[in-house]
């Protein structure tokens, strides 16, 4: 279970990614954040951002009608 869950379902590209970036900025190192997204770009964009920003992609889970992307803040 992630430390924080952001429900960005219904928000359009790049909304879910921007909400996640804001949450990661505010989180402590080591914390995990899950973002729920119905935007089809998120599950491709967010892993790229995670790599670029130097965090860890814990997982991308495809639920019925939305995706859950879990990230651990590393720095």
């Amino acid at each position: 279970m992630a430390d924080k869950v952001i429900d960005a379902r219904g928000s359009f590209c790049p909304g879910p990614m921007m909400e996640l970036i804001r949450a990661v900025k505010e989180a402590k190192v080591g914390e995990t954040i899950a973002v729920l997204s119905t935007d089809s770009g998120s599950k491709r964009d967010i892993p790229l951002w995670v790599q670029k920003a130097g965090h860890e992609l814990v997982g991308v889970i495809e639920h019925k009608g939305y995706d859950e992307i879990v990230v651990r803040k590393l720095r």
Partner: peptide, 11 residues
């Protein structure tokens, strides 16, 4: 607005 957001996200 969207391209600016994507660019910022990618550093």
């Amino acid at each position: 607005g969207i391209l600016a957001s994507g660019a910022v996200a990618m550093g």
